[in-house]
Amino acid sequence: MDETGKELVLALYDYQEKSPREVTMKKGDILTLLNSTNKDWWKVEVKITVNGKTYERQGAVPAAYVKKL
């Protein structure tokens, strides 16, 4: 869990989004888990830093590609 009490997951593999509802992640990324009720796809929040600014993006990733921490 992070400092706000939200559950975290670890990306076990790289994943490139294939639709606007998904998010890209790299192996080793730590993501915030938002919903894991679907056994195949979990909704997560990814933090992306671009030019020193951090953005948050929500989307789905394959459940088999992440592990709860």
Rank of each mutant, 00 (worst) to 15 (best):
L69K: 03
K26I: 06
I30C: 08
K6G: 10
P20Y: 08
A63C: 08
E17W: 06
I30P: 00
D40M: 12
T49G: 04
K43Q: 15
R57L: 08
K67I: 14
K68M: 09
L8C: 15
R57I: 08
Y55H: 08
P62C: 07
K39S: 12
Y15W: 09
R21Y: 14
A60C: 15
E7P: 10
E45S: 15
E7R: 11
K39M: 10
Q16V: 14
K39A: 13
M1G: 13
M25A: 01
A11E: 03
T37E: 14
S36R: 09
Y55M: 10
M1W: 13
T54V: 12
V61Q: 00
L10D: 01
S19D: 10
W42K: 00
L69W: 07
Q16G: 06
E45L: 14
T4C: 15
Y13C: 15
G59S: 02
E22D: 04
E45C: 14
P20G: 09
K27Q: 09
E45G: 11
I30H: 03
N35R: 07
V9H: 01
A11N: 02
P20H: 09
N35M: 07
I48C: 13
E7D: 10
T24C: 05
E7F: 11
V66C: 14
E22Y: 05
V61T: 01
L33E: 00
T49M: 11
T37G: 09
T4F: 12
D29A: 06
M1E: 12
L12Y: 03
A63Y: 04
M1V: 13
R57S: 04
L31Q: 00
L69H: 03
N51D: 13
K39Q: 10
D2P: 13
L12S: 02
W42F: 05
D14R: 03
L31R: 02
G52D: 06
G5I: 12
K18Y: 04
T24G: 08
S36I: 07
T24W: 04
K47P: 05
T49V: 13
M25N: 01
Y65E: 02
T4G: 13
T24P: 06
I48S: 06
A11P: 02
G52P: 01
N35T: 06
G28E: 01
I48M: 09
K6P: 13
A60Q: 15
E22M: 05
G28Y: 05
T49D: 08
Q16T: 14
A64R: 14
L33N: 00
T54K: 07
V23F: 11
T37Q: 11
Y13H: 10
D29T: 06
P20I: 09
D2M: 14
K68W: 06
V46N: 03
T37F: 08
V44H: 00
G5D: 11
E3S: 13
G59T: 01
E45D: 02
V46A: 08
T32H: 08
V9I: 07
V23M: 08
K6W: 09
L33K: 00
S36G: 10
K39G: 09
G5A: 13
E3V: 13
D14I: 05
V61K: 00
E45R: 12
L34W: 04
S36F: 06
Q16Y: 14
K53S: 10
K39D: 10
G52N: 07
L31F: 07
N51R: 08
L8S: 07
